[in-house]
Simulated scan of single mutants.
Amino acid sequence: MGASDIPFTKQMRKATREIHDVSDALVNAKLAVALSNDSVWAEGLLIFYEVFRYLEEAMDRLKDTHIGDLKFDGMRRTEGFKEDLDYYLGENWTETYAPRESVMKYLMHLRELESNDPDMLMAYIFHLYMGLLSGGQILRKKRQLVSRYLPFFSSNSRGDKVTEFGEASILSLKKQMNTAMNDIAQSLSDEQREKLIEESKMVFELNNQIIRTVRGTNRVVIKKLVIAAASIAVISVAFNYLVLRK
């Protein structure tokens, strides 16, 4: 089977496998802490809020291009980000908010692409939304489990709008996105497809840069260790007391 016979989305995933693995490791190191801590979860939302907002505004501006063909009903996440951030940070959080430097660099790159080669934005739309439909759903379910079985940790059923797609089938949405991307790729030149694959690597590089800026993870880890140590100490005291009474 030649490269032209392989679905374009599979070619994109194969080309980004190595850098994607780095992203997964970073998410595990940084955002996994957010499973039991809302402040870290809010940090994760905050770094991606501007990126998704820009992409969705760009999709409106470029609705008559290939990018318009990549949209599907219910994909918009900006309002979900805003609702979640209102919940975690308070409704007035935008009054003192300013995007951090790494996010501004990300946005500058997106603006340059829109000005010079807007089709390249499809790499960001595809990978970021597929990320919410894949890894985002895994994180959502894990947070729900933490909230259910470890109630002494801070985690809530509210504040998860960004990963909520209503009654829509996640599998169906992923299939829709894959089909749209593959159909678009068939109308592109070999050069355009190659550029999209290379830009896909940049998606994960930029994602990694902003994920590294998530704050509070070390503090949460230390807090968990203190809680664990205290729990062990209480169990030890109780055990010794029971033994000595015999």
Rank of each mutant, 00 (worst) to 15 (best):
A233M: 13
M177G: 08
T96H: 07
S154D: 11
A34R: 04
F126C: 04
V221E: 06
M120Q: 11
T96P: 03
T96D: 08
R193H: 01
A180Q: 05
E91N: 09
E83F: 11
R215K: 15
G90V: 02
S169W: 05
E101C: 14
I222Q: 13
R76G: 14
E114C: 02
M104G: 05
A185Y: 00
Q144M: 12
V22Q: 12
R193M: 02
E91D: 07
R100H: 10
E114Y: 04
V237Y: 13
L188R: 04
G68R: 04
R158Y: 08
K195D: 06
I67R: 03
K246Q: 14
I19C: 07
S39R: 14
D21N: 09
Q186A: 03
R143D: 05
I125F: 11
L188M: 10
F239D: 05
E101R: 15
A98E: 13
Q144S: 11
A228F: 15
N182V: 07
V234E: 03
V234T: 12
Q176T: 07
R61E: 12
F152H: 09
V243G: 03
I6Q: 04
H20P: 06
E164R: 05
M130S: 05
N116I: 02
N28S: 15
R148M: 10
A34G: 04
P151M: 14
E101S: 13
V214H: 05
L188I: 06
I184R: 01
G166R: 10
R143S: 05
L89I: 00
F81H: 10
I227Q: 14
Y49V: 13
Y129R: 02
A25R: 07
L89G: 03
M104W: 04
V33G: 09
I67Y: 00
S134E: 05
T78A: 05
A15R: 05
H109R: 11
S36G: 11
R76D: 15
I170P: 01
A238C: 04
Y129W: 08
